[in-house]
Simulated scan of single mutants.
Amino acid sequence: MANDRYLIPVLPEHSRSVVDRLLEAEERETEKYTITTAKELLAIKQAAIASVEAELNVDEMVGMKRKAADPLNAQTKKFAMDGSRKQELKEVDEHVFFVVNYEKYNMIFRNELVVDFATDRINRTAGQVVKAFFEHGKNSMKALHEDDTPSATPLHIANLLPADLVERGDIVLQHDSMNQHHKPGMQDIVRGYITLLQTDTAGFVKTKDGAGANQYTINLGKLRKTMKRRVLESLLSERLGVATCRIARILMEKGKLDENQVQKLAMLPPKDTREKLAQLTLHGFVDIQEVPKSADRAPGRSFHLWYVHQEKCYKELLTDVYRTITNLQQRKKHELSLRRALLEKLEREDVKANMDLLNDHDKANLEYMNKLLERLETSKSRLDLMLLILRDF
Rank of each mutant, 00 (worst) to 15 (best):
K380R: 12
L41D: 09
Q187M: 14
L197D: 01
V205H: 01
K363P: 06
R331V: 08
D120S: 14
L383M: 11
L196D: 02
A364L: 13
A341W: 01
M64V: 09
L387Y: 02
D176C: 09
K142Y: 11
D392A: 12
M386V: 15
Y105N: 11
N179L: 14
V96I: 15
N260S: 13
E27M: 11
A126N: 10
L223G: 04
D350I: 09
A48V: 07
R21V: 03
S17L: 04
P154T: 00
G169H: 07
H156Y: 02
G241W: 03
L390Q: 01
K333P: 06
L22D: 06
L280C: 00
A364P: 05
A143V: 14
L41H: 06
E259L: 10
F117H: 11
I157D: 00
L22G: 03
D147N: 15
Q174R: 12
D296Q: 10
L342K: 09
V92E: 02
Y6C: 10
R391E: 03
E94T: 07
F79I: 14
R191Q: 11
L41R: 15
P154V: 06
T37Q: 00
P299H: 06
K380Y: 05
H175Y: 08
F285I: 02
M141D: 05
V172A: 09
V172T: 13
